[in-house]
Structure formats: structure tokens, C-alpha cells
Simulated assay, not measured.
Amino acid sequence: MSNAVKRFLELTAKANKIVITTHIHPDADGIGSEIALCMALKKLGKDVVCVNEEPLFERYKYLDPEDVVRSYDEVKDSIGKIDLFIVTDTNSLPRIGKNVQEFVMKSHELLFIDHHPCPKELSAIHCIDSKKAATGELVGELITALGVKFDEAMALALYTSIIIDTSSFRYPTVTGNTHRVIADLLDSGVSPPQAYNMINGTKKVPYMKLLGTVLTSAQTTDDESIAWISLTEDQLDLYKSDAEDTHGFINHLLILDNIKVACMFRQIGDKVKVSFRSAISSVDVGIMAQALGGGGHNHSAATVIDGKLENVIPHTIKKVQAMLSDDE
């Protein structure tokens, strides 16, 4: 048993009042992890609730059948002293939102449960394992260590977190351990086709047309090592689509020959969100994003840059080329 797991077991054993949160603008990994962990701790008789900065997005509510997730505004006047405050899927307090951060001051203990890279000094006193493909994979191990048997609701939440954070198991961080956790979740009643369709949603024809339009914008560098697509706000409006539906568009570039780095540029007002992906273990797009003011994993990262697409795209591609060249 790792020191991180021992630390988790010691803190949860001593705690009764537990609050769990995740980062702002949460994805399925953060949400699935906090919900599954909350349900597991409730089975042990703990007084536990999930509190996020904002209400749960409608598209994620099916992951919360026991209605354990609350927004800050719902509970800000009723949360008293907290024995243990758990943060999932980030190891940075500013990322949980300025309001939820107030609960840290009411908490006896703070614990990050995460798989993002961090300084060794931080991982030494928290429950952080950057070798895990998803926070959901780590939480699955923690629930097993608690001696709690997965029920179907917990399993669905964790299965969803893992398929989203691994892009359906295509990233180099996926290991045999990832699939061993997945096997336990499947044995608990998860249906892979149903889980995939529920998180990705059934689509309409306008979505297909938007995808086709965006993929038509695909370009590559001369050596085909970098490929990119772009998306405007007008296109989202034209095809009556939500930005949430476009997150997976970039992954279509990963099937290209010779691809090392895939990029997607999305205009948001006077800024451009730049997403990066790579399926090559020797290419760290997290470091690239960090160099451009963002961050993330070695295989999936993002940043936000001031400006318009026509200027940000060539400027960014030139920098990515330089970073690839320097790496080689």
C-alpha cells in the first residue's frame, strides 16, 4: 500500500464531517471522482457532501443519482466546522473557486486527490499520483482500500471519469492498472455502450455539420508533425451547438500520419483557447502549454491567448515548431 493511500485512510478514518470539491468548470473526471468518493464515504456512515463553486451542469446530473453535489450558494450558510476538506482532480486551491476556498479555513485537514503533475513536496503530504491515467482511477483504488464495494452508480461515475480523461483509453498514460480498475467497474454493472453514449450525448444533424466544417479547416505543417483545426463563435451559433460538444474534435487529428502535436483553436470573445493533444509519450504538450501561459498533462493541455484566430494560429504554430525542434 502506497504512502498516499495510507494517508487517505488515516485522514478519512479520523474524520466525520467531510466536504469534497473539484475545480471550477469541472470535467467528467473531477465530477465523477468527487461523486463516487462521496457515495463510498456515505456507506461508511460519514457526514459528507460535495460542494462546488457552481451548480452541476445539466449534462452531468445523471452521474449524481443520490443528489450529493451542492453549489456554494446552496450551503454557504449551513456548513460549519469541517474535519476533512478533499479536493479532487486539481492540486491548486485557486482552481476550486474563490468562494469554495473559504471552506479551507473551516477545515481541520486538507487533502488533494489528484493525478496532475506537482512538486514532490506537495505530493509528499497529499494523495497525488501523476502515473494514474485519471483521478477516477486513483479514486477507484481508494474506494477499494476503504473496503467499500462498488455499486453501479459509483462504478458509472468512475468509468465515465476514466474514459473521458483517457479519450477512451488512447492516451499513453493508460496502463494495465487502468484496465484492472475498469474491470472492477464493469463487474459492478457498467454498460460501456450506455456509459459512452450518456456522457457524449446523442447528436443531431447540425452537430455533424459543425464537425464537418471544423475538420475541413484542418491544416498541417510541411512535415505533418503538427496539425490544427479552428472554431469560431459564429460557427457555434450557426449550427446551434454548445462549446462543450466540441472538446473531442481535436482527437480526430491524432489519426494523421506523422502527427506529433494536435491543436484546436477556439475563439472566445477577444481571446483564443488553444487545446493541445499528443499520443506520443516523448512529446510533452503540458510543458508546451505551460510555456504559453497554460498547463495540463503531457498528453492533453490547454492555454488561453489574447487575440484573434488569424494572428494567434500562426504565432502559436511557430512556437510549437520551435519547441518540437528544440526537443529533437
Rank of each mutant, 00 (worst) to 15 (best):
M1L: 12
A4W: 08
V5N: 06
V5A: 09
F8Q: 01
E10P: 02
A13R: 14
A15Q: 00
A15C: 00
N16S: 06
I20P: 02
T21R: 04
T22I: 04
H25V: 11
D29V: 03
G30W: 09
S33N: 11
A36W: 01
A36D: 02
L44P: 03
V48H: 01
V51T: 14
E53R: 07
E53K: 08
P55F: 11
P55I: 08
L56S: 06
F57R: 15
K61G: 00
Y62L: 11
D64H: 04
D67L: 05
G80L: 14
K81M: 06
F85R: 08
N91H: 06
L93H: 08
L93C: 07
I96E: 09
I96T: 13
V100L: 06
V100D: 06
V100M: 04
E102V: 09
M105T: 12
L110E: 07
K120M: 08
K120A: 11
L122G: 09
H126Y: 12
C127W: 02
C127A: 11
D129I: 12
D129M: 14
T135Y: 06
G140S: 13
E141F: 09
L142N: 06
L156M: 11
Y159M: 00
P172H: 09
T175S: 15
H179C: 00
V181K: 03
I182K: 05
L185W: 01
G189Q: 01
P192I: 00
Y196F: 14
I199E: 10
P206V: 01
K209Y: 08
V214I: 15
A218H: 01
T221P: 08
I226E: 03
W228I: 14
S230P: 00
L231N: 07
T232A: 05
D237M: 15
D245C: 00
G248M: 15
N251W: 12
H252E: 14
K260M: 14
A262Y: 00
R266I: 12
G269P: 02
D270N: 13
K271T: 14
K271W: 05
A279Y: 11
S281N: 12
S282Q: 13
V283Y: 10
G286F: 06
I287V: 12
M288T: 10
Q290H: 08
L292I: 03
H297S: 13
H299L: 12
S300R: 05
S300F: 05
A301F: 08
V304Y: 07
V304W: 02
V304P: 00
I305E: 04
G307E: 07
I313L: 10
T316W: 13
L324F: 04
S325Q: 13
